[in-house]
Design a protein around this nucleic acid. Sequence first.
DNA 1: CCCAAAATTTGACCTACATCAAAAAATTAG
DNA 2: CTAATTTTTTGATGTAGGTCAAATTTTGGG
Lengths: 188, 188
Amino acid sequence: MVKHFEKIEQLVASLDLKTQLFLDKIEKTKFFNKGDILLSAGSVCRKSFHVRSGIVRKYYIQNGKEITTDFCFEDDIALAYTSYTFQQPSTEFIDCLTDVKVSITHREQWEAAKKRFPRLLELDLLLTEIHAGALEEDLLDLRTLTATERYEKLLTQAPELLQHIKLTHIASYLNISLETLSRIRAKF
Amino acid sequence: MVKHFEKIEQLVASLDLKTQLFLDKIEKTKFFNKGDILLSAGSVCRKSFHVRSGIVRKYYIQNGKEITTDFCFEDDIALAYTSYTFQQPSTEFIDCLTDVKVSITHREQWEAAKKRFPRLLELDLLLTEIHAGALEEDLLDLRTLTATERYEKLLTQAPELLQHIKLTHIASYLNISLETLSRIRAKF
DNA sequence: CCCAAAATTTGACCTACATCAAAAAATTAG
DNA sequence: CTAATTTTTTGATGTAGGTCAAATTTTGGG
């Protein structure tokens, strides 16, 4: 769930045509089915998944329980951030909550592209800044909001999410047990 | 508390001399006293504070209570990240827990430097990636560890911190009440 | 349309940690 | 060195939200 969409658009639009064409050339469209796993914990994340349609989820497993860290919709880029950046084994899984269409770019090719078209560094930086900003916000929320407040915030900021995603996943995303979430919802 | 120190060093070392000299030129050394405030919530963060000695703390105030988000020691860069990046009013304060020596660089000049020496974009990106990585780890810890486990982790990863910093601040950093932290410590 | 499986709700109980209050220990200033 | 102030500990009590179990509702395949 990345915001700041306009900023990204704007930067991409300001790139020269050659760069944009190159980016198009190194990405490949693929289709996955609901339930398919795009990345497993333990393996190194070497591709980015630019979601074109459908819903993708990032999660890790803690004591046999799935903990959702993010949902990715159209235009979001799904990747296991730390694994991708530092080329370490991922702690996260990435899977498809629906049938999905994604544009895949391999990290190597993206790195090469950045070498060849240095302005892509600006894009990479912007994306990373936005990611960090979102993490800071999540951290703040987790520290200061109660379970109910976190739910309410989600409700106002991303109500569409509740239409499409199972409560189990939403509960783990909000760091609330399924039962508690159900009780919160009962009182509106 | 930034790790990955070697990576940064390495990248800086790989910059050509002109770039390095330029960086030196735009930064200014200043001294502050214990208790001094480097940035207040509400104002926009326009400088970065590279800590040379002493301890700096970042925190925000929630219902009249200070919540510490980070401690910065020698070599760390203290700034209100989101405010600095997007030039919004900061939610965070930055203050000095001890007398402090810092190198200050103004954002404008840093931005200009990036324009003039594009390889600095790589440095900026690296710093942002490291920041994001740390945030991801904090988030994971907050989601999965108990109060005791968070304290133990701090104890093994940054024991020096406990020597120098008041328990009130450590408690708020760990998102634990002061009393609970005291009880955790009582049982070693 | 119906049944099996999955998702959600409801109920009873429990626990980690917060809060409030006061005592004890450590620090600082005069 | 002592009093005043700050920091930390200890005690008593409260509560948000977790866990386990069972009932209900929804969903999807045949």
